[in-house]
């Protein structure tokens, strides 16, 4: 099957991941309301690797700078993240 198909999958993924970043960015702006319970530190934007079915991508998400705990909001999990999952499942 064609390499164009592959490229198209790649494109679609990249586009969605850009969106993931945007949504994550919105969370980031959520005026510092989240705090890591263990470390007592505010959750801050940071690089995180997410992966599924053998593909990995770096994204910016809210994270505890000390213990590394990451917040995935409902909006992200059921929106763009789900979309990426579906795209990868059909790859």
């Amino acid at each position: 099957m064609s390499s164009t198909m592959l490229i198209r999958t790649g494109w679609k993924l990249r586009a969605i991941i850009k969106d993931v970043k945007k949504v994550a960015g919105k969370d980031l702006g959520a005026e510092n309301i989240f705090e890591c319970f263990k470390c007592g530190l505010p959750m801050e934007p940071g690089k995180v690797t997410v992966s599924y079915l053998g593909s990995s991508f770096p994204v910016e998400l809210l994270k505890c700078r000390q213990c590394g705990l990451v917040l995935i909001t409902e909006e992200l999990a059921l929106g763009k993240m789900l979309e990426v999952e579906k795209t990868l499942e059909d790859k």
Binding site: V48, S51, G68, V70, E74, M81, E85
Partner: peptide, 13 residues
């Protein structure tokens, strides 16, 4: 209050 899920693995979690 709420529950949701995802299948992606998130490094750190």
């Amino acid at each position: 209050h709420n529950a949701y899920s995802h299948r992606m693995e998130v490094e750190g979690n």
